[in-house]
Design a binder for these strands. Structure first.
Length: 593
RNA sequence: GGCCCCGUAGUUCAGUUGGUUAGAACGCCUGCCUGUCACGCAGGAGGUCGACGGUUCGAGUCCGUUCGGGGUCGCCA
């Protein structure tokens, strides 16, 4: 039982309002800012909840003398009386701006060195400095509110899934390395010299085994580890909302996911989402947007000109069209004013995605300007303009290449055009979309074999089962991704629950029987003991928090993130270990530092 | 691994064509100030110009290497 003594209970700084006027309160927090007027000292006192002004007057000389020594970020406890501020001294920018606390007693709980950057400043500070002193950066209200936002979102997700009958179950972090997928983080075994655990890239197999075990509905908010290069939206350790359900079809998983997101959105923003989300097949997404994670907040869709230019005099187009390639373009509405230089920089931009060139047509009132116009008859040109729905003032941009290159180049060009023309603002509504009917396999030139697009446990569509062996490229999977504003938020699939099918897929992926037995024997065995049909989905929690909190980087929503070179600048991890530690693990270092 | 951007005071930045003692603002320190709220005023301290090497009579500035941070391509089943 909490024993409350009048006047001694701590009040949160941000909660000191008019209703408390006249009462004796205790505040604890950090000195945010100090304004010393010689005869009167104002301190903005900060805690998690916000700021309140506390006032020191010289009528209490001991306390006043103590107050003169206060500096930024000192931790203090004050007790005093809540008073209305005098006429004209109200601060409308603070929720506590109508009142102030007149201090009767002050206790310095801790002093503080001058911080390397001011907590109370609005100034942008170099991220390396912020990361080295992450605990100070996290003191800043902006970052702190994002971490608290994350907590509220996670809480909502847990509540929702619990309400839907899901059981939260932990799975091991020390697990075994499996082929395919991302590079593993390895943990050497002391007990078994020369053997390694792998940190999970996701709890995929374990959650399937929990379905075999009969839990029916599982979830976990869980760290996953992938040793790949970092990006603005990628960290080597990240958190998934991992979900698996038995006896379901894709629609059931999608319904659940939509319900969960909408509930969470309502919890953190007060409004539900507009569900169900629209759906696009993978094929349509690639065709219209050149991407399997299209940003639907704007148009600029890809237009296919392959047929139209197949017999044109422009060799670059016609030869590509006749040899199985694609000629596609984008109508950059109203971009006819782009300078030659801007168009050149767009050409440079698409080059990094493999496009060998970027043809263009500037559409004028009665004529077109274009280096390629001379290769087309007037009729061909008119058909081209009609297909592009071109109007005066438009700029048409074309790429001719293999389908995958065209998609990559134009898909990214589309995003670049939207950025350059300011098509997306903070007010642009969010666009969610499911991408469905993914191909099961894709041929890897590098490995000279088919690899799974999703993962090797994904179920093919029933009708495609016969094609797995002879025509893998045609097989579609029961897989689905959820995309928000061009970012993949999550993805999942219905899994294979019959052993022979799983064996067939492993074979199609070129895994030998021995390898399968060694690495996936336990899975195949499990499937043969009455595994129910099951499927699920996993969401990137960090990305969801990042997008919903309008953060620029995933680092802003992770309390202790790593740099692009996967370092923790605060603890200086990773770091060498002692020779004794290596010896215990039977490891030897072969590079000099 | 490739490409691009950045690195000057504690912080944010300026620094001309390579030229004398590298500046500003904020912060910090000292003093003054009884109604401020990004308080004000006066004074002061504070620099391995990321590091190393080169060119030059002379380098913050030019060149090379390297370290660190960021973005991106590859990579991320």
């Amino acid at each position: 039982m909490k024993v409350s003594r009048p006047g001694t209970e701590r009040i949160a700084c941000g909660k000191v309002t008019k209703e408390l006027v006249g009462s004796q309160i205790v505040l604890k927090g950090w000195v945010h800012r100090r304004r010393d007027h010689g005869g009167v000292i104002f301190i903005d006192l900060r805690d998690r909840s916000g700021l309140v002004q506390v006032v020191f007057n010289p009528d209490n000389p001991t306390v006043f003398a103590e107050a003169e020594r206060l500096r930024s970020e000192y931790v203090i406890s004050v007790s005093g009386t809540v008073e209305l501020r005098p006429e004209g001294a109200v601060n409308p920018n603070l929720t506590t701006g109508e009142v102030e606390v007149h201090v009767a007693d002050l206790q310095v709980l801790n002093t503080a060195q001058t911080p390397p950057f001011a907590i109370a400043d609005y100034r942008e500070v170099d991220e390396a400095v912020r990361l080295k002193y992450r605990y100070l950066d996290l003191r800043r209200p902006e970052l702190q509110s994002k971490i608290i936002f994350r907590h509220r979102l996670v809480k909502a997700v847990r509540d929702y899934l619990d309400g839907q009958g899901f059981v939260e179950i932990e799975t091991p972090f020390l697990t075994r390395s499996t082929p395919e997928g991302a590079r593993d983080y390895l943990v050497p075994s002391r007990v078994h010299p020369g053997s390694f655990y792998a940190l999970p890239q996701s709890p995929q197999l374990f959650k399937q085994l929990l379905m075999v075990a009969g839990f029916e509905r599982y979830f976990q908010i869980v760290k996953c580890f992938r040793d790949e290069d970092l990006r603005a939206d990628r960290q080597p350790e990240f958190t998934q909302i991992d979900i698996e359900m038995s006896f379901v079809e894709p629609q059931d998983v999608q319904d659940l996911a939509e319900g969960m997101l909408s509930y969470a959105h309502e919890c953190v923003f007060g409004t539900p989402l507009d569900i169900p989300f629209p759906r696009l097949t993978y094929a349509e997404a690639m065709e219209r947007f050149g991407s399997d994670r299209p940003d639907l907040r704007f148009g600029l869709e890809l237009i296919d000109f392959t047929e139209l230019v197949a017999d044109s005099g422009f060799k670059v187009f016609s030869s590509v069209a006749q040899s199985g390639g694609k000629v596609k373009g984008i109508n950059a509405k109203g971009c006819a004013s782009f300078s030659r230089r801007e168009i050149d920089s767009l050409t440079e931009y698409v080059a990094q995605f493999g496009a060998k060139g970027l043809a263009w047509i500037v559409v004028g009132e009665n004529e077109v300007k274009s280096p390629i116009a001379k290769f087309f008859s007037e009729e061909q040109l008119n058909r081209l303009l009609k297909a592009a729905e071109a109007a005066p003032g438009d700029l048409l941009l074309f790429v001719a290449d293999e389908p995958a290159t065209v998609a990559a180049a134009l898909g990214n060009l589309r995003l670049e055009l939207a950025r350059r023309t300011g098509l997306i603002t903070d007010e642009t509504p969010d666009k969610y979309v499911w991408i469905t009917d993914f191909p099961m396999f894709e041929y890897s030139e590098e490995e000279q074999k088919y690899v799974a697009i999703h993962h090797p446990f994904t179920s093919p569509r029933d009708e495609d089962l016969p094609k797995v062996s002879e025509n893998p490229a045609d097989v579609k999977a029961k897989a689905y991704d959820l995309v928000l504003n061009g970012t993949e938020l999550g993805g999942g699939s219905i899994r294979i629950h019959r052993r022979p099918v799983q064996e067939q897929i492993f074979a199609a992926l070129g895994l030998s029987q021995d390898e399968v037995a060694d690495k996936f024997g336990f899975l195949l065995e499990a499937l043969s003991f009455g595994a129910p049909p099951h499927g699920g989905i996993a969401f990137g929690l960090d990305r969801l928090v990042m997008l919903w909190s309008k953060s620029e980087s995933i680092r802003d929503v992770i309390a202790f993130p790593k740099t692009q070179s996967a370092m923790d600048l605060m603890s200086k991890a990773p770091a060498p270990v002692t020779p004794q530690q290596l010896k215990e693990l039977s490891l030897e270092i072969t590079v000099d530092d």
